[in-house]
Nucleic acid binder design. Sequence first.
DNA 1: CTAATGATTTAACAGTTCGGTAACTTTGAG
DNA 2: CTCAAAGTTACCGAACTGTTAAATCATTAG
Lengths: 226, 226
Amino acid sequence: MEPNDIKILLVDDETDVLDFMKYNLEREGFWVQTATNGLEAIDVAKKLQPHIIILDLMMPKLDGIETCRELRNMPMFKSTIIAFLTARDEDYSQIAGFEVGADDYITKPIKPRVFISRIRALLRRLENNDNAKIIKAGDIEVDRERYIVIKNGMEISLPRKEFELLNLLISKPGRVFKREEILSKVWGNDTIVGDRTIDVHIRKLREKLGDENFKTIKGIGYKFDA
Amino acid sequence: MEPNDIKILLVDDETDVLDFMKYNLEREGFWVQTATNGLEAIDVAKKLQPHIIILDLMMPKLDGIETCRELRNMPMFKSTIIAFLTARDEDYSQIAGFEVGADDYITKPIKPRVFISRIRALLRRLENNDNAKIIKAGDIEVDRERYIVIKNGMEISLPRKEFELLNLLISKPGRVFKREEILSKVWGNDTIVGDRTIDVHIRKLREKLGDENFKTIKGIGYKFDA
DNA sequence: CTAATGATTTAACAGTTCGGTAACTTTGAG
DNA sequence: CTCAAAGTTACCGAACTGTTAAATCATTAG
């Protein structure tokens, strides 16, 4: 999962802390939203469906512990990663923090590098969860984790190169991939193969998954269309 | 799991810190062993098979990071909880810490109540992992605690490596495990074994538990399917 | 400590599938 | 209409996996 796809919700009543964190996370390519109290946080969270929520402990309206408890009560946030921000000397609050379902807590003040590193550690935990890597387009479904393709409910297993080629094309339906690009992404930059190799593989995909989905752009390359 | 059943290994070169932690943990009923450097820690860990290992970062012989890395390389400690002890101002080390597979870090100095609470939080994580002591998939049941497999009500006992391989594959039915991944998770990152080793073990599993459950994805790896 | 037993790995070979090419045909953009 | 680009097909060598037996390693009972 690329930083680009990751949504993070920061919640703190001190806007300078928010700005500091936001700046650092955005520089890494994360998509960041903020809220300044618990109630607002819950609102935003429902809309944004963030992957990670960072909650300050001390906040007006609804404190971090309570906010966390509320979030955890919604099935929607059952597996969202929630971490607490805490000042160094209020560490007794950690006790309640873990009990309420927090995944981690982060001590303020924190250096940017450490902060980012912590976020990445949390992210790794998220990725370990079963975020099934399944792509659907039209009546075709590609399951990268199981290495199978499903068409009309039928399981089709493809050889490696065919699977990788399909996987590339279907990753952006409608977008045209230049022959050159296909070669470098599926075959690798260094391998040298003949002119007809791609064609042959495309043909096999057409054979197995239906002609209509694979369109040729003569002189350029191929695209997958639903 | 009662405190009484929990084995904790504390590793620090300052004996007064060790004593402090040991005293507090034992008062709660944990079974505590100590070591004063990384090498000793690995030795003791192998014998004790602790549930939790607390490593100081700064140590003679082998520092915390390295010790952790070594431990994580042994399949035996794959799911052991490892936490780092760190002084407040050396927090840059957290970066390496998480990357090397640490589950948490604890800042020194720490109050007894907070310390115990952290340990309990870690423990909760352990119980969650271990809770799935019995995994069922299709007509096969794996009892991780007793090292036993049940198929159609029949108890089948597998040798260790076969069991671990099955255990890995069945932990996510349907998901494909790359050969590389299988090697690192069952055999450990450093061990070097021949090409056919995995195949042979797969064959034995097929022999004992039925061909149909173990599918080969050529060029990639294997998966368990119910 | 030793032998015996069983587990694990290696080695060698067989079998299969995959991937790539060659040679030829067809297509479609200009 | 032309002809470079793409489609098609059959085929062969390479890459992988399966299978077996034998060698090595580890563990345990005696």
